[in-house]
Design a protein around this nucleic acid. Structure first.
Length: 771
DNA sequence: GACGCAACTTAGAATGCTATAT
DNA sequence: ATATAGCATTCTAAGTTGCGTC
């Protein structure tokens, strides 16, 4: 017992050191006071209720009957697969294609003009939104200008007009471009799907873009060895000399290009915390020495004696210089970049030009693993064309390797989506060049993902009932699986594959939880059966949560932890393969991660329903949207480091709010004054003054409200990252439908990139969509 | 059924860019 | 005109899942 506690303490302090600051939000969510937290709670409590209800029905089984069950084969198979979900994958796909755009294709058959109409409507919507936004902007500018005019009595004549015209022109151009883009967009979601595993029929591209070769340092920038001041006593015969050796800047050492390049990698990172870490330094030094010539290796034996300061300074100067380039130079740079994008950034896939997501080969550098990664600092090697496999269509032109080089292989595999791949030297894993998120290949898969999650919605109740039953199974595996599933469903934990020790940072997910990652509390903060989670998950992000669970789960956990020590697996009979195999027997396509998608999306939908009122203004609606989004981000534990400038920017905003408040007070008194005068004198001119003052007050109030809303939003968002859930977990159709229902322009929710990624959803979703 | 590989999604940090405040 | 806050984009690490092999 004692030793277990000690170890637990150790583990915790270790984690606290790295991610302590990120904790507060999750902790407070249990006792939340504001709207967002309350509604999140209510969402959860509903879930809780349902599980509690079924647990009552399921009378507590006897634990002891479990014990003797050994590793003998599982007998779970008993329940018959649900007929509804045994449809073949292909069937599912076909059905989906028919279900969703079916209406449209049917209508298309009846009246071929419809798609055009729809496109028009779609366009005009956007135009309107855009137009409105532009108008507002223009108005703002005009306001500003009039103020200036009044102030300075300076007619801002021709120049202002000109710029206004220019703005107008730019606006028109923008809209035109947008229209064009819309016209050119590949509406793949209206097309038939390919059979089975075929991903494309034609694929042509230029191959990956390679980073520039290493440019050796100029002679004016040097590396020095034996930097730190050191006292050396030399005894010759009867005499002793005290020598000060290696005094700064030490010996100038001209490194071979290979060694120098790696030295530069390190020097460039000197301002980063990485370079202070022992593991990082050791790994770097070991790999650096491998790149040295024998002479260099025999000289340079201690990283502490290396002086990279000149190289570091040069790098900083370079960064600075780039920042200070003239407008023209920057423009030229940008154009050169664009040229590269134009040439390498696109491919031709089934007659459509598609953007490539990452067309650049990753440049060499020092490996930046997250958390306590045992391989951090290792040299990530330069990739040569000889390392790269090209994948393209048989009947397409093969990309040419850089002059004097050849590809490792050229293949024509249309069952995969990648254009090029290579094996990386740190973990030995394969890296791919694939399409952008707005491509057909990615979009279709995304759509499919949400369809599977929606399918789960229709059978999640029966699945929940089943795992609640399984909590009292005679089989240990089944019980462990049930508890794991309970966590995955209720807490949106990741599956948790086992990882090779020493190869990666020590992180876990559900199935790989160890006993030291949870603490059981019979009583805690007025709740019974509380499980305290504390572990590092993906990307070494800490998951800390205190969760009241149903009695049966709690009892099982106690049982699983019996006779185990820290380091032992909580679910020792379970792994992700087993879990997923079971899940896919319950519903085709069901895996652990579908629960995350499902729970994220359903939470968004519920929260949006709960939080937004039709009568709210747009700012309030957006706050509600963000809160709903935030509820999901908290559920999924999507965290970020609080922005460095957070406190400052918060203070700034507060100051602005205060200023506006004062202004409002002033406007109000002025209005009163004007009213008084108007009443007493009855002058119609004064009446219009009153109207103007009224408008001013109103405007002021609106702006104040907007800022206050913004402040609340930002405060609540301090350590929460909304982007990940928005991009990967929330069915975009929920958001699109909400926008339509609430008269919120889609641009307020999704930026350009996101609108491109979710073009399929924006196009096909009606206001009555339900996840 | 354990294992390892391949392919793909999900993730936060770093960097770049732009609108806005000063 | 310039600085900078904050959003957008890029980058690539770190997961999940399915499949073939033994």
């Amino acid at each position: 017992m004692g030793s277990e506690n000690d170890a637990k303490g150790d583990a915790k302090t270790k984690q606290k050191g790295t991610t302590l600051k990120r904790l507060s939000d999750r902790k407070s969510s249990a006792s939340g006071g504001d709207v967002m937290k309350n509604s999140l709670k209510s969402a959860k409590s509903k879930e809780k209720k349902s599980s509690a209800g079924s647990s009552k029905k399921v009378k507590t089984p006897e634990v002891e009957s479990l014990e003797p069950v050994s590793s003998s084969s599982d007998l779970v198979k008993s329940e018959p697969p649900d007929q509804d979900f045994t449809a073949k994958k292909k069937g599912l796909k076909r059905k989906r294609v028919k279900e969703e755009p079916a209406e449209e294709s049917a209508q298309l058959a009846v009246s071929s003009t419809l798609p055009v109409q729809r496109r028009k409507r779609h366009l005009s919507d956007e135009e309107e939104d855009e137009g409105e936004a532009e108008k507002r902007k223009a108005q703002k500018k005009r306001e500003k200008k009039t103020v200036k005019k009044e102030e300075a009595e300076h007619p801002v004549s021709k120049r202002a007009k000109k710029t206004r015209e220019e703005i107008e022109e730019a606006r028109r151009l923008k809209i035109k471009k947008k229209e064009e883009e819309e016209q050119n967009r590949w509406r793949w979601w209206e097309e038939e799907k390919y059979e089975d595993g075929v991903k494309w029929k034609f694929l042509e591209h230029k191959g990956p873009y390679f980073p520039p070769e290493y440019q050796p340092l100029p002679d004016s920038v040097n590396f020095f060895y034996k930097g730190p001041l050191r006292a050396v006593i030399i005894i010759t015969g009867q005499r002793a000399f005290l020598l000060l050796r290696g005094c700064r800047p030490g010996e100038k050492v001209k490194l071979s290009p290979a060694a120098e390049e790696v030295a530069v990698f390190f020097a460039q990172m000197l301002d980063h915390e990485y370079t202070t870490k022992k593991v990082f330094r050791e790994n770097f030094f070991k790999d650096w020495r491998k790149e040295m010539t024998p002479d260099e290796r025999s000289l340079i034996k201690d990283l502490e004696k290396c002086d990279f300061s000149e190289i570091h300074a040069m790098h900083k100067a370079k960064v600075e210089a780039r920042k200070n380039l003239s407008k023209e130079e920057k423009q030229a740079l940008k154009e050169a970049n664009q040229k590269i994008v134009d040439e390498y950034g696109y491919c031709l896939l089934d007659h459509h030009r598609e953007r490539i997501g990452n067309f650049k080969i990753e440049p060499p550098g020092l490996f930046r693993g997250r958390g306590e990664h045992p391989k951090q600092g290792m040299l990530k090697k330069r990739i040569q064309p000889e390392d790269v496999i090209i994948n393209c269509g048989k009947d397409s032109s093969t990309p040419l390797p850089p002059a004097g080089h050849h590809w490792k292989e050229v293949r024509h595999d249309n069952t995969v989506t990648w254009l090029a791949s290579w094996t990386e030297n740190i973990q030995g894993s394969i890296k791919y060049i694939m399409l952008n998120a707005n491509s057909k290949l990615k979009g279709e898969k995304d759509w499919e993902k949400y369809e599977v999650a929606r399918k789960l919605k229709s059978c999640v109740e029966s699945i929940r009932n089943e795992y609640l039953q399984d909590l009292r199974s005679r089989q240990m595996v089944t019980r462990q699986r049930a508890v794991a599933l309970y966590f995955i469903d209720k807490l949106a934990l990741r599956a948790g594959n086992e990882k090779e020790e020493g190869e990666t940072a020590d992180t876990v997910g559900c199935c790989s939880l160890r006993v030291e990652h949870i603490t059981l509390h019979e009583q805690l903060d007025g709740n019974e059966c509380v499980v305290e989670f504390d572990f590092l998950g993906k990307d070494s992000i800490r998951y800390y949560n205190k969760v009241p669970v149903i009695k049966k789960v709690f009892k099982n956990l106690k049982l699983f932890m019996e006779n185990k020590e820290p380091g032992d697996e909580l679910f020792d009979r379970l792994n992700t393969a087993l879990l997923n195999k079971h899940l896919s027997s319950l519903m085709p396509g069901l895996t652990a991660k579908v629960f995350r998608t499902y729970n994220a999306s359903i939470t968004l939908q519920q929260q949006l329903k709960e939080l937004t009122n039709k009568s709210d203004n747009v700012a309030e609606k957006l706050l509600s949207y963000n809160r709903a989004n935030r509820a999901v981000a908290i559920l999924c534990n999507h965290q970020r480091a609080a922005p460095k400038t957070f406190e400052q920017s918060m203070a700034n905003l507060q100051a602005k709010i205060d200023a506006r408040k004062e202004q409002l007070a002033l406007a109000k008194t002025e209005l009163k004054q004007a009213k008084k005068e108007a009443k007493s004198k009855g002058d119609p001119k004064l009446q219009s003054l009153v109207e103007r003052k009224k408008a001013a007050v109103k405007r002021c109030e609106e702006q104040l409200l907007k800022m206050e809303v913004q402040a609340t939003d930002r405060e609540e968002n301090k350590q929460i990252a909304l982007g990940t859930s928005k991009l990967n977990y929330l069915d975009p159709r929920i958001s699109v439908a909400w926008c339509k229902n609430m008269d919120v322009p889609i641009e307020k929710i999704y930026n350009k990139t996101q609108r491109e990624k979710f073009a399929w959803a924006i196009d096909m979703t009606e206001a009555d969509f339900e996840f």
